[in-house]
Design a protein around this nucleic acid. Structure first.
Lengths: 195, 195
DNA sequence: CGTCTATTTGAATGTACTCAAAAGCGGTGG
DNA sequence: CCACCGCTTTTGAGTACATTCAAATAGACG
């Protein structure tokens, strides 16, 4: 329960001196959340970007038929927020829920702006964060457009084995864009092939 | 044929003094490309990020069945590259072609790195560029997962009317993830509804 | 003007969805 | 500690949406 993990996360991309570390840490708010808690509700302003120290969170969008669309999962050492709404002070489109009891560190938009002004190095850090998020999301688009449901499922399994262990199949289905029933039948076909 | 457009693009997010402007411009390479030219081929290292001064470009991915998947369009005042491969010196996954005769300004990875070191303000500029790219791509994922082909087509029409005018229907189909035949029939159904 | 590609049209096919019901699993309270 | 409850997963049938293939038409470019 200290800031080591997040500091290492930052240190992957930029070097901070002791004072900058203090400034940064002072802007973060520790939060402990229980399983099934929503840390963000659609409609409310998304004030924070959250770093997951431990646990698993999920962002999802409720479409107009009430279906949950899983936008992202976040396990420890990941950042999560409704980025568009966070950056633009807009009401959130997404919900963010804890899938397990979790410890998170929250940085408010105000503190982020202050941080970027006072410690410009963080511009670089967030540039890289955004770069990675962008290229990951672009790859997801490409895979959605060029791969079958089965291939997408296999890639998910090999890319995020640690996530597979901790989320339900229904949630994976809604991330991949297939119905849970169909995902179930894909799994069955896979088993038949093996045996 | 001067740097006004790109300087205004940059000035939207950061303020540069005369010297910084000179430095920046000196790192750019003007290029004139004819319709149907590939400025990037899949497999070759993606050396440049390109700013479109005039014309229309398209990035696409060739899937293992030889089908073209349109990753993005870029009209004037937009940036385009195979971001992942550009940033990581990897062989490109995409092709980038000019759909019309175009004027572009190219910034090499080396110059970008140098620019970020010598004019740190550009960290902010590229952070914002990446932010916008990320949130746009995330919205695309959400729309792909929650909207029907018809709705996605309608959103494309209203969001990118200027692009609709200059690209073929087949290319739009491959951006939206539907077959060109099906997009054609969607259009027909729309016409019937109106009349 | 001729050629090449895009678009349209229609038929047959397939992939994935919806709906309904049964089985499995985990968490909770008695 | 066990029994029950609720949610997830599985299974199957029927359906819908979108694809593939083939052929005709229309448009764009040299």
């Amino acid at each position: 329960m200290n800031g080591e993990l997040i500091l290492r996360n930052v240190a992957n991309h930029i070097d901070l001196d002791a004072e900058e570390i203090t400034t940064f840490l002072s802007m973060l708010k520790w939060k402990q959340v229980k399983r099934k808690t929503l840390i963000l509700n659609s409609g409310e302003v998304c004030k924070y970007i959250s770093f997951v120290h431990s646990g698993v969170l999920r962002a999802f969008y409720l479409d107009n038929q009430g279906k949950q669309v899983t936008v992202m999962f976040a396990v420890n050492d990941w950042w999560i927020t409704d980025m568009y709404c966070f950056l633009n002070y807009k009401p959130a489109m997404m919900h963010i829920e804890a899938l397990t009891d979790s410890h998170i560190l929250q940085l408010s938009k105000k503190n982020l702006d202050r941080l970027l002004r006072t410690v410009p190095k963080f511009e670089k850090f967030f540039r890289i964060l955004m770069q990675n998020a962008y290229t990951r999301e672009q790859l997801r688009v490409i895979e959605r457009l060029s791969l079958s449901a089965e291939e997408r499922y296999n890639r998910f399994l090999s890319k995020y084995p640690h996530i597979v262990k901790v989320v339900t199949q229904k949630q994976i289905a809604s991330y991949l864009g297939v119905s849970p029933e169909h995902l179930s039948s894909l799994k069955k076909m896979k088993d038949l092939k093996i045996s």
